[in-house]
């Protein structure tokens, strides 16, 4: 299985449409066997889609993504898990553990069918180990 995730420093890129680098990871079952980086082009969305297709990605994990781009990728048969946030390594681990739907890996407002709202207006709710790029 070939999984790709757009990276921004050590985090997943907040917006896939504007991402610059794609980390492509090969798995044999649950074991990672290889990884490499692919530079993503700027310009029309077709370039982005073609690059993802050329990388032979089967599953894409990403942050926010525009609807046309999401539709185009899904139309090409790529499984997309959008609106993820946080550290790339944490997300890859969470994927293996089937925990990507946990609110701590999702962008605010994306609860994958579960209602999750932080209460109160005061606290700084940071995910452990998060670093800003």
């Amino acid at each position: 299985m070939r999984v790709a995730i757009p990276v921004w420093g050590s985090r997943v890129s907040p917006v896939f449409d504007a991402a610059g680098l794609l980390l492509v990871v090969d798995y044999a079952g649950d074991r990672e066997v290889k990884r490499h980086l692919v530079e993503l082009p700027t310009g029309p969305l077709s370039g982005l889609v073609n690059t993802v297709l050329a990388s032979r990605t089967e599953e894409l994990l990403c942050g926010a993504i525009s609807r046309p781009l999401l539709d185009m990728l899904q139309g090409e048969g790529i499984s997309v898990t959008p609106f993820l946030a946080g550290e790339v390594e944490c997300l890859l681990e969470a994927r293996l553990g089937g925990r990507l739907a946990d609110p701590c890996y999702l962008m605010p407002g994306c609860c994958r069918g579960r209602r999750h709202r932080q209460r109160g207006r005061g606290g700084h709710h940071r995910t452990a180990g998060r670093k800003e790029p």
């Binding site: 605010p108 407002g109 932080q118 207006r121 005061g122």
Partner: peptide, 8 residues
């Protein structure tokens, strides 16, 4: 607001 506050 409570979804946004505290987030990057």
């Amino acid at each position: 607001s409570d979804e946004a506050v505290g987030k990057h």
